[in-house]
Every structure is written in C-alpha cells, then in structure tokens.
Design a protein around this nucleic acid. Structure first.
Lengths: 343, 343
DNA sequence: CTGAAAGCGCTTACAG
DNA sequence: CTGAAAGCGCTTACAG
C-alpha cells in the first residue's frame, strides 16, 4: 500500500501497458508516431490508473508548457477582473492554466512578478496593466521581456507599452475625445479632471483625447483644473474633494476611469450636490456596475473581457515579423450622470 | 553570443563563483549549511549574471514548490475577485505565485481544473467556491483532494464543503438571520426570495438563517415565494421579474447575494417601482460597489479579502490533526434600499 | 562547511 | 511504428 501511495508515474503506466516509456509518452502527449490502437490502449491504462503527467518533468524535458502568466495592477478592480475573466475563459478552452500576479501599479514590484513568471517558465506572459510614459520606469521590465521573447517566450500587452510586442490597444484617445465632445456638446464650459497618475500611458492617452476635443472648440486642456490621484475609487474621492473645494463653479467632472468616477459621485452625494442637475460626471471603461450606480454613469465602454480573450489569442498565435496591434473600438454610453449645465 | 543566449544555469553560476553546484544551490535556495560569506558571494555572482532558478527543475528535484492554486466560480464576480485579491496579496508577501482557475459553478469542470492544479504539483489548493449540498455532486473532487492531501498537498476551502480540510466559514446562517430580522423588524410580511441554486451550501445556509428568523416570529420559510435562478446579476433580474409578476403584493425581496440584488434593483427601476418606498431590497456580501448603487444596498458584510488572506495562511500553516475552521463574522449594513413597508 | 553523485519524471533525437 | 538512452536543471542524502 505504501508504494501505491505515490502518484503513478509514466514508467508504471508503460509497464502495465506493456510498452516502452517512449511509446507511452507519445501516446499520452498526443504526439505523432504511435499507432492509433496502441495510443488508445495506453490511454485506457493511464485513465484506469488515474495517471496525470507531472508538468514539471514534462516541461523540464522540453515538452510544451501549459501555463501562461497574467500581470494585472490589482485583481480586485473590476477593470482587471473582467480582463482576467476573458483570459481565463480562453485558457480553459485551450487546456491552459493561468498564473496571475499583482503589479500594484509599481514598476519595481512588476519587475519582481515578471521575473517570477519567467522563472516559472510560463509559455506566455500577458501584461494587462497600463504602461508608463517614461521608458526608464520600466526599462528593466522591457529588457527582461525582450530576453524572454528571444528565448521563445510569447508576450502580449493590453495598453500602450514601450515594447515591440503584440498589443491590444484600448481606444483611449478616441474615447477621451468622445467623452469630452459629449460634455462640450451639452454646453459645459467649466470642466474639471480627475486623473490617475500621469505617468501611466492610459491616463496620458485619455487626456490627449480630451485635449483634442477642446482644441476643436478653440480651447485648451491647460485651462481645465486637473487633480492627479490614485486611479481608484479612493483616488476619485480625493480628487473630487479637491476639485470641488478649489473650483466650486465647475459644472462637470471627467473622471479618467469608472472607479474614480464612483469616488467623485460619492463625494457629490455626501455634499448634497445634484448630479447631473448641478454637476455632470463621466467615467471611462463601463465596468459591469456602471449602469447600476446612483445615478447611472455616462462613460466610455471598453470590451474588457474581449480584450483579455484577444490578448491571450494573440500570444498563442504564431509570431509574426512585425508585432500585431489590435484596436478595441469604444462606445459612448450616455446614462443619467450627465446633462446640460445649470442655467 | 549564441551560447549566452540561453538562460544562465546553476552550473554557470557555480563555475563562475568557483564552487560546486551543491554549494551554489544551498546558497541560492537560502538553505542551511553554507558559510555566510560563501553564500553572499554566490548570491552576488548570481545576481550579476541575472540568474533565476528554473522552478520546474527545482520542484522536480524535490525542492519546495512555490505555487498555490485558487479555484473560483468566476473571477469576474466581485465576490471572488475580492477574495482573489486577498489571496494574491499574502502570496506576494510570501514569495508565492498563484494559479487561478474557473469552476463555472459546475462540478465537472471544477474537477478538471483541480486535476490540472494537481498535475502542476502546486503546493496548496484553495477552493473558494461554495460547496454543493449533495456530497455526490463533488464526490470525485473530494476524493482527488483527499489523495492530494495524503501526498502532502495542502488544502483549504472558503465555504462549507464535504471535505475534512481547513475552512474559512462565511457567516451565512447568522447573516441570513440578521437580514431577515431587519426586514421583519421593519414590519414586512410579504417577502420574496431571489435565490441562487439550492444545490449550493451557501444558498442553503443563508436560507436556513432566514428560516430561523421567521420561525422566531411563528412563521415559516415555506410561506415565502422563492425563485431559484443563477447566482448572478442576470439571475437576479430573472428572479425579480418572476417574483413581481406572480406576487405583485410583495413589499420586500431578499436576494441571496449582492449580484442578484443588483439585478432585482434594475428590474424594479425599469418598472418604476419605488425602492424602498414600495419594495425593500436586500443583498448579501457587501461587494465594493454596494454602497454606490441606486439606491445604496442594505446587505450583510463579509470580509472577502480577509477571507482570501486567511484561507492562504491556513493552507500555509503546519497541518493540525483536526482541520481548522475559522468563522468570518458578519455585519448588517443598513443603507437606503430598505425601509418600512408602504402603509 | 563543501563536494561528487544519484535521482526527480518526463521527452526527444537516434537507431532500428 | 517502437525502443534504449541521454538529458532537461535542479536538490538532497552521502561522504569528507
């Protein structure tokens, strides 16, 4: 009994099936070079014994790796959990397994996580967090990934990064333009901005879109009060408070993601400021609950789950000479949090 | 150049440091039996070379495994993404990496995922989804995990399962009682229930709590109209519609999780039914956005992130003879979605 | 404290 | 199509 306590190994399966390890291996890994009947027989024996290959051994021996790494800023954020959900669904369909890690929006910890993923010899790495504007911020990550790719690892990113890898590019710029045009079209002139760190390409690009819309009206981004805070609900609260304190005459606030918008809305609610009667608020992403907020949030819809699916599919597809880039499109979703400015 | 293209191996580090592989290994894995100076020297050389141990080789050779598996029903659900966030945070602190997979609330696919995790030789498995009432539904999962544990694997679960493993037990029963008492205390008599699948222990336990509260008033759970649907926002919508159609006189709806409550609220909003003026609604879990909904949701708070942290800590702690069980406590959070029934 | 050697469980050239 | 053998990159008894 003591012996059979250990997990059955390939030798045992081979012996019981009356074949060599080589044949057993080929039959089980579904590779070519075995007769159909032999393969079938071996698989039956293996199933009977409850054999499951040791993936460490398989991978060490040069077999295919079946795990992919996913780096997110924070899995608790709906933006990232929806992306993760998309990644997990195609992974399951492909028989792959995914290792998720937090970067915490910090290049240093992102580097640590990516090194670990590489040490784990994952077959592909998906970086889902926004890149940083300053290439130096992620220089080490970039070079680690470059080496990883040179050794055959596959990389894809969601968002704009300083990396010649396949990329899913959220429609940040165009979305920023749409949301600003919406507000401008409603007649708003005193608009405040609740931004995440400007070091993030995502924030930069969304702002750029807003800037374009303003320019088209002969105005400039520099005129708008902008507060930079964490790219989270709490950051939105902080930014909202500062904005309202320093610019009580604002009639609209553009939050650069839904999380921040939720924070802004909560500040407004606490202060008894009517939305959209007194102040309009917009978000960005269209996370699942955006439509259920009080008031429901006008925002830019990005197909997060689909972005996750595409990122993994790209990483799995054969490499191309030039990296692929796939735009996401976006949609302006007008709900109850925006309206014309007070007369 | 061609040669150094490959990842540096332990031999290279050892050679360059002028020591044997054994010494290099001991120095790098932080194990005992090396002089401090020697260890320091080896580590410096390794860092210089950008050496990162191959975890497959390490694990195959009998070294400690550094990955843990986490099984959730669906990572896109805030309940699970908050749990995952807790798990990831202690994992990062411990230098561990986590593999996440979806069970999709389906015992068969849960089994597949768990087998994969075991094949990956993860050191611990955390099952975060609710268990099933019928032991047979998960008999194979249970036995796979039993074997896994016998071989030294660590297991912990969040929720009630038919498994003698360490468990974090959400306060489902007491929470159900609290929420029902709250509604009863407000004077509601015609209460409907929007439930997830009764096959889930979570649903069963929450209902049981509701039942206890009713009994204390001389009433019975059987009197209340109950609709079973998916344990999601869409399920909540479906249940809400059925409930309202068949029992237009209800003054309150108890949804068995926040996701379902959000669905119920959206139905009520679409139909122009005032909340809580005409109908009160309650949820369960207190996901991050519960307070930002329209109206903000009265619910039972469960410390999801903390539950994730505890589950991993238990799995990491030395095993005990009897499995540990840790209650979570709960808090009734009264917000704007509940009030007295209409006069 | 340090080293030589065996072995972890697989896969893949290399022969037949 | 099938098999014997080498090797993937580590760690851990076993000696010294």
């Amino acid at each position: 009994m003591a012996v059979s306590d250990a997990a059955p190994r390939l030798v045992e399966v081979a012996t019981r099936a009356g074949v060599s390890m080589a044949t057993a291996s080929r039959a089980l890994s579904g590779s070519t070079g075995v007769s159909r009947t032999m393969a079938h027989h071996v698989r039956e024996v293996a199933a009977e014994m409850g054999y499951v290959a040791n993936l460490h051994a398989r991978s060490l021996a040069g077999g295919p790796t079946t795990v992919v790494g996913l780096v997110v800023h924070e899995i608790g954020d709906p933006y990232f959990s929806e992306i993760a959900s998309g990644v997990l669904s195609v992974a399951a369909a492909e028989g792959l397994t995914v290792q998720i890690c937090h970067s915490g929006r910090d290049p240093a910890s992102e580097l640590t996580q990516i090194r670990t993923l590489i040490a784990n010899r994952v077959g592909a790495i998906i970086v889902a967090g926004s890149g940083f504007l300053d290439p130096r911020a992620q220089a080490e990550v970039t070079s680690a990934l470059r080496v990883y790719r040179a050794r055959g690892g596959r990389v894809s990113v969601i968002g704009r990064h300083h990396l010649a890898a396949d990329a899913v590019l959220p429609d940040n710029c165009a979305g920023g333009r749409s949301i600003a045009e919406h507000l401008l079209g409603l007649g708003h002139e005193r608009i405040g901005l609740a931004c995440g760190s400007r070091a993030l390409t995502t924030v930069h690009d969304r702002l750029h879109g807003v800037s374009e819309a303003l320019k088209a009206c002969g105005r400039s981004l520099d005129e708008l009060p902008a507060v930079e805070a964490e790219f989270t609900r709490d950051g939105g609260k902080a930014a909202g408070e500062t904005l309202l304190d320093q610019h009580p005459d604002l009639t609209a606030v553009i939050a650069l993601n839904d999380d921040m918008a939720i924070g802004v809305l909560s500040v407004l609610r606490d202060r008894g400021v009517g939305v959209p009667g007194r102040v309009s608020v917009t978000g960005f992403d269209d996370v699942a609950v955006a439509g259920d907020l009080a008031p429901s949030l006008t925002t830019i819809r990005l197909p997060m789950a689909e972005m996750g699916r595409q990122a993994l599919r790209m990483a799995l597809a054969p490499t191309t000479v030039r990296p692929r880039r796939k735009g996401t499109g976006h949609a302006l979703v007008v709900r109850d949090s925006t309206g014309p400015p007070p007369a």
